[in-house]
Write a protein that binds this DNA or RNA. Structure first.
Length: 219
DNA sequence: TTGTGTTTTACGACCTCC
DNA sequence: GGAGGTCGTAAAACACAA
């Protein structure tokens, strides 16, 4: 048995003893899937091939087991940062290389950050959509109020014409008719403006005061 | 079965902090 | 200067539709 075979044999034994912890790359019996050749070697594999420290093949595994991931997740929930003491403890508890634990935390932090950005985006999007709906509602309210104003103007005009008819024989009737026809503002003449308090209001433009004077004739 | 998109593991480059 | 962080990306594993 050469060195590689010894390593594989050891891995097989370990994976049988700790099926939830060790997930060796060594193909199991009946497992036909050949490992695809990597362009970039992982450090542990490179070390193993060189026969260096820790390079006896014991850590030649890829996907972490469910149990390992579960323990790492628990630890991550505790604290997203990884002090070297915790890293070493986790590594020995899970039978992993401390480097693997560090890498797992790096990747987990990246995923967590992505998720946070995604959540933030969703929240902003919802807020934007709510604002758009509210704007539509306000626009429609403005339209409704303008219609009401228009109806009020029509009513005032009708009243004015009735007054004109009533006073047609009076000496001042001609001047009232002229002024009313000249000064009556119509719906389209109103616009958004600002009152004395600086609040937005529907104002008669171009001359709101004239409008008020015109109204006062009928009060 | 195969092509394709996604997830997971791992690494190098670079940065910050002590 | 070393340890440990982020960022970008390669590559393997995995999921899944066609």
């Amino acid at each position: 048995m050469n060195n590689q075979n010894v390593d594989d044999h050891n891995l097989l034994l370990i994976s049988q003893l700790y099926p939830n912890v060790y997930t060796p790359l060594v193909p199991q019996q009946g497992e036909a899937k050949p490992a695809r050749r990597r362009k970039r070697k992982s450090k542990s594999v490179a070390v193993a091939e060189e026969g260096g420290a820790g390079g006896n093949g014991w850590f030649r595994k890829r996907k972490l087991s469910d149990e390992q991931v579960r323990m790492l997740e628990l630890s991550f929930e505790d604290d997203h940062k990884l002090e070297s003491e915790r890293k070493d403890r986790l590594a020995s508890e899970l039978g992993l290389d401390p480097r693997q634990v560090a890498v797992w935390f790096q990747n987990r932090r990246a995923r967590w950050k992505n998720k946070r950005v995604e959540d933030e985006y969703t929240k902003l999007k919802n807020a934007y959509e709510t604002t758009v709906v509210e704007k539509c509602r306000l626009d429609s309210e403005v339209l409704h109020l303008k219609e009401q104003l228009y109806e009020a103007e029509r009513e005032i005009q009708r009243l004015a014409q009735r007054v004109e008819g009533t006073l047609s024989n009076s000496p001042i009737s001609s001047s009232v008719t002229i002024e009313a026809n000249h000064a009556t503002p119509f719906f389209g003449d109103y616009d958004i403006g600002f009152d004395a308090e600086g609040d937005e209001n529907l104002l008669y433009s171009p001359d709101y005061i004239d409008g008020l004077e015109w109204m006062s004739q009928f009060m």
